[in-house]
Amino acid sequence: MVGGDPPRPGPTGSDSPVHVALRTTDVDEARAFCRELFYGPLHMNPVGDRSGFAFSGDVVTLGPITVGEISYGADVHLSIADLEVAYHVLAPLAGALRSRHRGATVIADQTRAAVYRPVGDIDLEWPGDCRLLSVKVDRAALERELDAALDQQIVTPLLLGASFDLVEGPGRTWAALVRLLHSELCSTGGLAGQPRMAARWRDMVISGLALTVEHPYGEEEPAGLQGPRRPRTVKRTLDAMHAEPWRPFTAGELAGIAGVGVRVLQEAFRQHVGMPPLAYLRRLRLDGVHAELSRSDPWQVNVSDVAYRWGFTHLGRFAGAYRQRFGVPPSQTLRERR
């Protein structure tokens, strides 16, 4: 281990980067490292001869994004069930791997990245000569980015393509941005280590990914895949809620932001968003709490503190709404993610 025990990532939205590195020939230690920094239910096992196993991982966390340069030194098989809380991209820097996700098989190499949605099992055949960038983006962050950028309703989880080009177009630029960010945050003294610059870089990675991956919201896509266009009143209200989800908005305040009456705004939301404004705000807050609990240390984070931070003032009603949306109490999410 480089630098002792891995520090825990900061809360979603944190502008302070965290760098953790590990070099080991111990399979269990490597598996625990990947579970700690990426996903708890990840399964990794060497295939065949283990004598060449030499894990190398350099991982940086910056709020809602986690970027790691990972290699194993020996052939391994990885599997993981639903990611639930994140979208993920694997972009090889050397070698290639075979990826299966949601019925699609992708050969990811230096010309093509593999993309994973929050729902659907992932199965990877990872050769020993494959070294790659593993990029995790919190689900709520990417969905907020697309939702804010478009004037139409999006389906969640996002209907992303299974891969994208790394040689030409936006994918080349995005991959270069991620490589530079990772390199800067793994060293010391650079501009990327400054919180204000790190925050801007973080936002560029998220917005760049939203513009790079294939999704059914572009003008070139069949009209049947596009959501209904949203009026400006709805768009203004959504922008305000996404900017300050913790703010104690009332129906009247939201209507004032939209410039219409309460009933008019409620009807517009039912038609173009599928629920009333305050119901959407509650879901936005619940998703934010879920994302933060899913990546937090249960010894350092208190459920009630997180709930208050996201605008919930009545913990009993919050717990009931959380269980209804995610099927488990918030305390269980906090326990199980580690």
Rank of each mutant, 00 (worst) to 15 (best):
V273W: 00
E29H: 06
F33I: 08
S51H: 02
A175N: 09
L238W: 02
M275Y: 00
A96F: 06
D121G: 01
G208Q: 10
V178D: 09
P118S: 04
R139C: 00
D287G: 12
D28F: 00
R8Y: 10
Q194L: 07
Y87L: 01
E214F: 12
N45K: 11
M204L: 11
F53R: 06
Q266V: 12
V155G: 13
P245C: 01
E184G: 04
G252F: 15
H182D: 01
R337T: 04
F312D: 02
A91P: 07
P41K: 03
R229G: 14
M241L: 05
D49L: 05
G171A: 11
R202K: 00
D305W: 03
E36P: 10
G161R: 05
R285A: 12
F249M: 04
F55D: 04
W246C: 13
H19R: 15
A86Y: 02
E219D: 13
R100W: 01
I70F: 12
P6W: 08
W174K: 08
W246P: 06
R144Q: 07
F326Y: 12
V205H: 04
F318N: 04
L225T: 12
T105D: 06
H314C: 14
S187F: 02
A74R: 03
D297Y: 02
D165T: 08
L93N: 10
L185I: 04
D287E: 13
F33L: 12
F249Q: 06
L150I: 03
L191E: 06
E221Y: 14
S304R: 11
S14H: 06
V18R: 09
P46W: 00
A198V: 01
E214K: 14
A94G: 07
V155S: 14
A141M: 10
R309S: 09
S79Q: 08
M275A: 09
G63K: 09
S163K: 00
A176W: 13
L142T: 01
R102K: 01
V137F: 06
T25V: 15
D5P: 15
S16Q: 13
Y72K: 00
A148P: 03
A175H: 10
D287P: 14
Q152E: 11
K136Y: 15
G189I: 03
V167Y: 11
G57V: 02
E267Y: 14
G227N: 04
D5S: 15
R50L: 13
E125G: 15
F55Y: 07
L166M: 10
E267Q: 12
I70D: 04
F164L: 00
W201D: 07
F318C: 08
R247H: 13
R295P: 07
R317Q: 12
D165S: 09
Q226E: 11
G274P: 09
R8G: 13
A86I: 02
